[in-house]
Structures are given as structure tokens and as C-alpha cells.
Design a protein around this nucleic acid. Sequence first.
RNA 1: GGGCAUGUAGCUCAGUGGAUUAGAGCGUUUGGCUACGGACCAAAAAGUCGGGAGUUCGAAUCUCUCCAUGCUCACCA
Length: 574
Amino acid sequence: MRYILKPLTRQIASLVHEAIQNAQQTGELPPVEIPDIEVKPPRKAEQGDYGASVALAMAKSVGKPPLEVANIIAKHMNKPDFISAIEVAPPGFINVRFSEDWIRSLVTILITSGETFGKLDIGTGKRAQVEFLSANPTGPITIGRSRGAILGDAIARVLEETGYDVEREYYFNNAGAQMRNLGESLRIRYLQALGQQVDIPDIEKFYQGEYLIDYAKELIAEKGDALKDADWQPFKEYAEKRMFEWIKETCQRIGIHHDVFFNENTLYDTGAVWKVLEKLQERGYIYAAVTREGETDAEIIAKSADLKPAQWFRSTQFGDDEDRVLVKSNGEPTYTLPDIAYHVNKIERGFDLLVNILGADHFTQAQVVRMGVQALGYDPKPIRVVHVQMVSVVRDGKPFKGSTRRGIFDTLDELIDLTSADAIRYFLLHRSPDSHLKFDINVAVSQSNDNPVYYIQYAHVRCSGILREAGARGVTIDGADLSLLGTDELNFLRKCLEFLDVMQTASENLTPHTIAFYALELANAFHPMYDRVRAFADGIDPNLQKARLAFYTATKAMFKRVLTVLGMTTPERM
RNA sequence: GGGCAUGUAGCUCAGUGGAUUAGAGCGUUUGGCUACGGACCAAAAAGUCGGGAGUUCGAAUCUCUCCAUGCUCACCA
């Protein structure tokens, strides 16, 4: 059995909307435009479960006092089963109270189908693609990278839960100068491992990571000195293979996977890159020049005098500050051209929603790509780019900067070793992507109260403990009378109902951090209640005990649900 | 200088125009353990929501301006 409950704020908003329409039909309200209806929990619990302020917003256009408008709307509102009362409060709020029996019935829903609680149908029948991580295989995943990785995976999960058919994609380039440097670096390590004295030619381009020394040894074990006269290419291939193995292994450790690995090269193999340029040319958005059109600065022109013409994209026609180069004067495309081709490819694959997780430093790039897509006549609307701000890693109160090339490891792998996948997932998720994230290694490592992860998981553990005890005592929840549940339990169940709205908001706004926050709030509602609502207190009435055990069965399902959506584990004991 | 963000309690941060009193966690102070696991609970102190002006019935939220911080403004990827 699968229940699909709809988010309650939206249900109430549509009830209010219908009521206004009804009142307009009877002439009690003039046919003014109906504003967006915001439904929120009131500040004080006595004021009801949810309230709408629309009467205040409409009062002016309607020409009546807000209180009167609220009364008219309330009079026309339908009252479905889950609502026990609709009240009007000054200065013009419409407050809704839930039926307590209906709230109690949530216990049954959570017990029988907790694993689908909060599943919504807003994306049903739609295909979404989430592209994230997309790191070139030049090194292991760093902590900086992992923020986007976790966010991308979390967004993918939320979209799945809200009905979308989701594909996770990893876009990479294994052909650039960086990869060549990586191969060359491994070649040098290989020769060194064979006992040759090889100087490092260009320290800036050399990858100093110690893992390359290990790979060099592996290569010797595998092939001996057969590669001693080879150029960088076989080394690059070997390094790439090992890097991808490493990246995928790290992903797996933290619960991330990708369905599709898309190599930028295929855009060249199929000619897509040049087709894009051609089409842009046909549409008149390309010009060949040494400098930007309109750039008359003598110094710039003088500097560019020895350059051959490049191919420029008239992105200024789409609001850009300046035109961008798509093909360099040496005939090679810039990164932008294949990137536009890639987005065209994605759009042509027929997705309804294309989410792309990028660092904030790629903002301009993403804008230009969007303009390119537009210039080609595609609707860029399905493309939604989420930019994550930087992660600054702090250890012992000091900034901890890493560089893949130097081989200083602030790797995600190492951090998983030090803490846990759960802690990392939570820490990287519980901040808005817009905010700079300070990742304190000491806090992440600590297994103390600083760490909200434990607080949340401990709620699940406590429920498990109660149910274990019930099992040991042979008490079942069959025939539990839910009407015995009291205010504490009802308030907790009210909090559970908010999950529906949280999921909808997270899905629509692509903001899974609100779920992480919600999980903490839920735990925060749980623990104080747990102290008061005891199942095995001395002399407890057996019927009340049954009801409370049913309640804790539901509560456990709720915590399991929210932790699962966040990609975290649900320990039985800690 | 332009663009995109950020600035809210001692710290880390939520807060998609609403309710005389702006929230959470941590930290601090005080109190509570025969315990379904105390990795807990109860209570308290703590804020001119960066400054200023404006918009309206009402602003942390919208507009303008100033200040501070981060990222970015390549024929790099």
C-alpha cells in the first residue's frame, strides 16, 4: 500500500484560493487578481497549525478591512477531513487547525509505508539529469570538490523522491594539457623507480602526489622496464585508469554513483563541436577577428598584432559584458565551445530538467554557455545551474589548503577515514550552497555533541532500543488504540507532517540543505519528548504502552526515512 | 572598476513580505541521573538582522546607496 500525501501548505493554499474564487462568484469579493497565497505555521501554537495572510495582502485592492476579507474567505472555504477548524484572527489571518484523529492516523501511515512517506508526484513523467562532480581524472577527489559531489547526489535523490526519472552524469575531459602533464609526471616517476636519475623539468606542471610513485611501482611489477623508452601516452592511460578507479571507489564509500560517464571527446568524434560553430555562424553570431569588436584600445591591438584571427561569439547580443572566443587563433577551440555542444547534446537527449552543479568560480562560464544554447535557438529554461561557494578547510584553527599537483592531501578519502561518510554527508549538506562553508576537520572528526549527526542518528537508535525492549518483553502493537496518544506525541507527529512541505520545497528549489536542517529539527523535537513519553515506566497502563510503542514504531520509520533521503545510515545501536 | 554571492546571538549558521517577543545547534551559566543507552533533559543569559535612506498596512526579507569579505571578469580548463 502506498500513500501519497500532499504537502499541507499547498493543500491549504488551494483551499483558500478556491474560497476566494467562490466569494468572487457570489459577488462578496470583487474580481481582483488573487495574489500568491502563503501558508505558514503561526508563531504561536495556540493560533492553529497553519495560517494564511492573504486577506491582509488583498485588503487594499478589495477595498475592505482585512478582517472582513478574512471572514468572507473563511466562510467560503471547504473543510476536508483533515481540518477540524478554520478560524479568523486579527488583523486578518485565516488559521487552520488539523483534526487530531487525522494527525494520529499518521502513525499507521508511517508504520505501513514509512519508506514512501514524502514521495511526491511533482516530477512524475518527467526526466531529469543531474550532472555533478565532473572532475577530470588528474587526481583524487578533494574536500573542495566533495561539496558539489554531495550536493549533486542529494539533489538527485530529492528529485527521485519527488517523482522524477533521474540520471546522474559525470562529464570529463581526458585529452587536455593537464592529462598530458599527469602522464609525463608518471613517466618520470617510472624512470626514477627504475633507478634512473631524472630531473623534474617543470615543477609547476609536475604532479607531485605520492600516489604516482606507487603507480610507477605497479607498472614495473606489471611490465618491467618495457616502457622505458615510451613517451607520456601509455603513462597517461595508466594514470587515468587508476585515477578513475580511485574516484569511483571514493564515491562508492560515500554513497555516490553515476549512471553515465560522458567523455568530452565524443563531442569531437561525432563532429558535434564543429557543428555548433557552424550553426552559430549561420545565425550570424560568429566573427573572425584579432580582438573583440569595438575594442579600439591601441595597446590591446598592438599586443594582438602578431595573432591570427580567432572566432568570436557575439554573446553581447544576449546581455554578456563582452564577446567570447570560441576558437583560438591556433585553431583549437576554447573550453566554451565543447561545453555549449555538450549542453546541446543534453537538451537533445530529451530531459525536462537539466541540473548542473558547479563551483561559484564557473558562474561566468555557465552564463556564456546558456547564451550559446539560446543563440542556437534552444530554450535554455530546463537548464538549472546550482553554484556552490567555496569550502575552506580548517584544521586546528588554521587554514588548510591543498593542491593536487603538490600532492598535499585534503582528499575526501582521507576525511572518510578520519570521520564517517555520514558525518561528511551531513556537514557538507547542512549549509545553503550560497554560503561559504567552513569545514573544520577537528569538529568533523570529533564524536561529541558538536556533531549534529550523532544527535539525529541517536533518535533512531533510541527508537530501536525501545522496540528491542518491547520484543524482549513480548509486547506487540497489534490493536493499539491511537486515541490514547497525548499532546507530546501529537506535536511530534505535526513535525513529521512538515516533511511533505520540506520535500516539495527542496525539490522545487533544488535545496536539499533544508532537509538536513529539518532532520535536526525533528531530532530536536524528539529527544525532549522521549524523556516524557515513556513506554516502560512503572505501572504504565498496557493499552497506553501499546499505543506508545506504535508511536515509536512510526517515529523510527520517520527517522529512517529522513536519514535515507539524506543518504545517511540508520544505526540500530551506536 | 563590472558581475555573482555573503554579512543575523560568543562561534557555526537557518529564515521563499506577515502575528506586540527575530530562530536552531554548539558554547556559556544554573539545575536534574536506580538509566526502554545520559551521545540526555529542564531553565537562563545572549541580537541596533553590516551602516544609512526609501517602497507599504507591515521589511532580516523588496529598491537605492555606502562599508566589509569571498569568487570572478583569459585566445585556461
